[in-house]
Simulated assay, not measured.
Amino acid sequence: MTQLTVPPLFSAEAVPGADPFERACAQAALGCDAGLVTHAITDTDLRAAMVFAPEVPLLKAMAMLPLCGIGFQNALGALAPPEVAVHLDWTGGIRLNGGACGALRIAASTGALQKIPDWLTVGLHLPLWPENDSPATPDETTLYAEGCADVDPARLTEAWVRHTLVWINRWTDEGTRPLHSEWRPLAHGLGEEITQNGLTGTFTGVDEDFGMLLKDAKTTHLIPLTTCLETP
């Protein structure tokens, strides 16, 4: 069973055979302390999740999704060969060298935008090795297929927690400005025509709360990041 070393005020729980995201949401609903990190690492997949206790309304707390994405990019950037490029989908998807490679997901105790959630959980799934020789779509990839076979998934998970903590502290002290500055160069599809939530237009950027700005011929639509919220 994989053991993780996590920063003070965090605690790690291995949940082999279970979904760490579902486990983290369940533990959060039962009142566990913030900082719980659940994880399950196999030969083919890295799965982990972190529990947070926001002190701001859900609309603001949704910044944890891109923040955890930045934490992951920083973590893999420190461990992977320098030629490996990491980009982030607005919805939480992760891309390595342009190929889809896992995703982040998010859930909270409430869907009310102006209410402070009792808890918020962000999950990470990263495929390490293909389950077969024929991926579901041509643009899918895995960590090891992109030249990262020497990256230990347990060490990567630990680094994800550490780098995420660094960005939480920056966000708390400095607000969203540094978060936006770090995220924007990593954003996949920015400046391109995309379809999101049934709307098609140019992805021109995000608002202060990371809501997507999608411009079509008539107007600019604002798609709140809360549309990515899952129901636990």
Rank of each mutant, 00 (worst) to 15 (best):
C148E: 06
E158R: 07
L65M: 07
A53E: 12
G111I: 10
V56D: 03
G111C: 04
A29E: 15
G71Q: 01
G77Y: 10
P135A: 05
D150W: 01
C101M: 11
L67G: 02
G99W: 06
D45V: 08
F72C: 03
I70D: 01
G31L: 10
L30C: 07
Q114R: 14
G92F: 08
L46Q: 09
A75I: 13
W129A: 10
P138H: 01
F72Y: 10
L30A: 15
T137G: 04
D139S: 05
P66I: 04
T44S: 13
G35E: 05
G111L: 09
A53R: 15
L104C: 10
A63S: 08
T91P: 01
Q114Y: 12
A29D: 15
G77L: 09
D45L: 13
T137F: 11
P81M: 11
A103G: 14
C32W: 02
E131G: 13
D43E: 15
V51A: 10
L79E: 13
E158G: 09
F52Y: 15
H125N: 11
G69Q: 00
S109Y: 13
A61K: 06
M64G: 02
V84C: 03
G69C: 06
R155V: 12
P153Q: 02
E158M: 06
F72Q: 03
R162H: 05
P117C: 09
L59R: 15
R105H: 08
D133R: 01
E140I: 00
L36H: 03
G92H: 09
G93L: 10
A49L: 02
A75P: 11
S134V: 15
I106T: 14
L96Y: 08
D118H: 13
V51H: 07
C68M: 13
A29C: 08
T164S: 12
L96S: 02
D152F: 04
P127G: 14
C101E: 11
L79N: 08
W129M: 07
H39N: 09
V86L: 01
E83P: 02
A100F: 11
A48P: 03
D118G: 15
P153D: 00
G99I: 04
Q114L: 14
D133E: 14
T44P: 02
L128N: 06
D150F: 01
T157K: 06
I106P: 09
L76Q: 09
A80M: 09
V151S: 09
A154I: 02
H163C: 12
M50R: 05
V161E: 09
A80C: 03
L59W: 08
P81D: 12
P82L: 09
P117T: 10
H87Q: 15
L120C: 10
